[in-house]
Structure formats: C-alpha cells, structure tokens
C-alpha cells in the first residue's frame, strides 16, 4: 500500500510538471494556432531565471584560502554574507522562492518579445513551417544558455526547512515507510495552485472570457471591436510565465542544464496530443495521467513482467489512445484537421 501511494505521489509530482508545460503549450495553440516547439526552451529559461538570481545573490569576493598551503587557492565569500551576515545567508537560502517573483516579469517579457518578434510572422504559415522555426528558436536559446552558463547542471537548493522529508505515514497511521520530500510536496501544491489560477483567470475574468470567445470564434469577437490580437499576445506571455514558473520550481528537484527543456518538450507534446490538441482540461488530465502511469511502470513488480516498460509506457499509451480516440482524450472536432 505504501509503495502504491508513493508511486501515485511520484506520478502526481511528475505529472504536475508535464501538465504545467502542456497547459502553456495548449494555451498558445488554442489561441494563436501555433505549434510552439520552443515551449520547452521557456521551461529551461524559467529554470535559468532561478540560476541567474542565485548567481546574482552569491556574487562573491575572492578570499585567500589559508588551509591550502602548496598552491594559491581562493574561496568565494558572497557580498551579501559580508555585508549582512546571517541575514545575507538567509536571503541566499531563499533564492528559489525569490526566483518566482524574479522570473514573472522576465518570462512575461520573453514571451511578448518572442510572439511579437518572431511567432506573429508565422500565423498564416503551415504547421510544418511553424514547427521548423520554433524548433530552430529553441536550439538558439539552448545554445545561448550553454554559452552563458556552461553545459553542466547547476544545483539549486530549497530553503533549509524544506530540505527534509515529510513523514506522511506517521500522520496517516500507516507506518514509517511513507515518507516524501517536502519540496516535492510543495511543487505538487504549487502546480495545483497555478493550474487552478489559470483556469480561474480564463473562466472568471472578463479578459479570460474574451480570450475564450476568441478561441471559439475569432472573427466574431473582432467584429465586436475587440482587439483580440493584443489579448492573444498577452496570453502568449502568460503561457511563458506559467511554463517558466514550472521550470523555476523544478530546479531543486532536478539541477537544470541547457538541455532540460528538450527533455520535457517531447513528453509535453505527447501529453498535449493525448489530452487532445487545444483542450486545456485534456492537457492537465493527460499530464497527471501519464505522470502516474510512468511511475507505476517503474515499479519492480511491473518491470519484472515487462522489462523496459518504464521507458516506453508514455508512447505506448499515446499510441493506444490515438488509435481508440484519434482526437485525444478531450480533443475537439476540427482542430488540426484538414
């Protein structure tokens, strides 16, 4: 039972990341009709917002390391620690939560520049051309990050009080084996809140109502004198923020490197296709579903029957769902269909 619950938690955790990326991807596809292969790069850029803030907070002065005697070695003491002592150390410790605030304006700006500067020129082009140009953009962004930060993963740590594990078993009266890292629980809660916020924004605000109307019938909304293009541009920016925040919060789980976006991109497209192109609910549902399936496929009992299933389960499920429901779980008729 413990193993079962742990794998569900693992799946929800992973699914949270898939769902957040797929949500942004679907928002862009649903509003602008663009198949954005640079979306994984937005996740990566979000993660590197956290890295950048950490680097800013730990800007250091070099002090000679007296413990090394046979060559000149220097250790780095952050200015914040020099100037503010323990307060400085605490600020550095909270760099990941602070990155949430830091990344929002940056990701919004990146999203707006990306849409206005490049993507808008490809609205009327074919999906194949959109894929080519956005994939090219992803590679360019990836190489820029590699040139600036190197190829190695850069570890990020959560605040001290969130580094251990929560003994869920003791709380639920189920023994000591049901433990789960605090930060992963925080990530899960954060993903849930962010997804809810996006849905609330689209469902309960006037802006969201207009956007949804535009997604249904763009021409009629424009005939009513509403500048739907501007709203869709903002939606692109919001999708970039959602994906970027997913990246920021994932850094303590997986140290980011320049390739992290590509690792998630392919899976996220599978999630979007399984959920149904253009369906926000489908993207979220498929994200969690595939995350959980991937976790269960990694269980020893499953792998002993089907060795290697953990590596292919997502694609296998995608094939089956597309055979049974060609439009995905919640796909609409007419989306990406000739």
């Amino acid at each position: 039972m413990d193993s079962f619950l742990l794998q569900i938690l693992n799946g929800l955790d992973k699914g949270g990341a898939y769902a957040l990326i797929a949500l942004g991807l679907t928002l862009i596809f649903g509003t602008l009709g663009v198949v954005n292969f640079a979306h994984g790069a937005l996740f990566m850029l979000g993660a590197f917002c956290a890295v950048s803030l950490q680097k800013l907070l730990t800007l250091s002065v070099k002090v000679k390391d007296e413990s090394i005697t046979f060559f000149e070695a220097y250790k780095e003491v952050p200015y914040l620690e020099q100037w503010f002592g323990q307060t400085g150390t605490t600020i550095i410790e909270y760099s990941v939560p602070l990155s949430i605030l830091f990344s929002i304006p940056i990701m919004l700006a990146i999203g707006l520049i990306m849409e206005r500067g490049l993507i808008k020129h490809f609205y009327k082009r074919t999906h194949a051309e959109q894929i080519l140009v956005t994939f090219g953009l992803a590679i360019v962004l990836q190489e820029i990050i590699k040139a600036c930060f190197g190829a190695n993963p850069i570890p990020q740590t959560p605040p001290e009080f969130l580094t251990g594990s929560a003994n869920l078993g003791a709380w639920l009266g189920m023994g000591d084996n049901l433990v789960y890292p605090w930060w992963r629980l925080v990530y899960l809660a954060f993903a849930g809140m962010l997804i809810s916020a996006v849905f609330a924004f689209l469902n309960y605000t006037t802006f969201g109502m207009v956007v949804r109307a535009g997604m249904q019938d763009r021409e009629t909304v424009e005939l009513l004198g509403i500048n739907i293009d501007r709203r869709f541009t903002i939606v692109f920016g919001l999708a970039a923020v959602v994906t970027g925040l997913a990246g920021v919060m994932y850094t303590p789980i997986l140290p980011p490197d320049y390739h992290i976006g590509m690792d998630f991109l392919v899976l996220s497209f599978v999630v979007v296709v399984v959920g149904g192109m253009g369906s926000l609910r489908g993207a979220v549902a498929a994200g969690f579903l595939l995350g959980i399936l991937q976790s269960f496929a990694s269980m020893n009992a499953v792998k002993s029957i089907l060795p290697g299933i953990d590596q292919i389960i997502i694609y296998l499920v995608a094939v089956i769902i597309l055979l049974v429901r060609p439009r995905g779980l919640m796909g609409r008729k007419g989306v990406m269909e000739a």
């Binding site: 413990d2 193993s3 742990l6 794998q7 693992n10 955790d13 992973k14 190695n152 993963p153 570890p155 084996n177 049901l178 433990v179 992963r184 789980i253 997986l254 140290p255 992290i260 690792d263 991937q294 976790s295 990694s298 269980m299 020893n300 953990d310």
Partner: peptide
C-alpha cells in the same frame, strides 16, 4: 534525472543498504 520512481521502492524493500552504481551527474542526482 529524476530517480524518485526508482528510490521509493527501496523504502519498502526491507533493504538496509542502498548501493548506487551510478557515476557523474546521475550519481549526484
């Protein structure tokens, strides 16, 4: 990258030693 799905079964396996035959970034993670 994420080894959580491989680590959680260790908790209930009855094992008292985990041997990590990993190196580099994999081992760190």
């Amino acid at each position: 990258g994420d080894f959580s799905q491989y680590i959680t079964p260790v908790l209930n396996s009855g094992a008292d030693v985990l041997i990590l035959n990993h190196y580099g970034k994999d081992m760190v993670n």
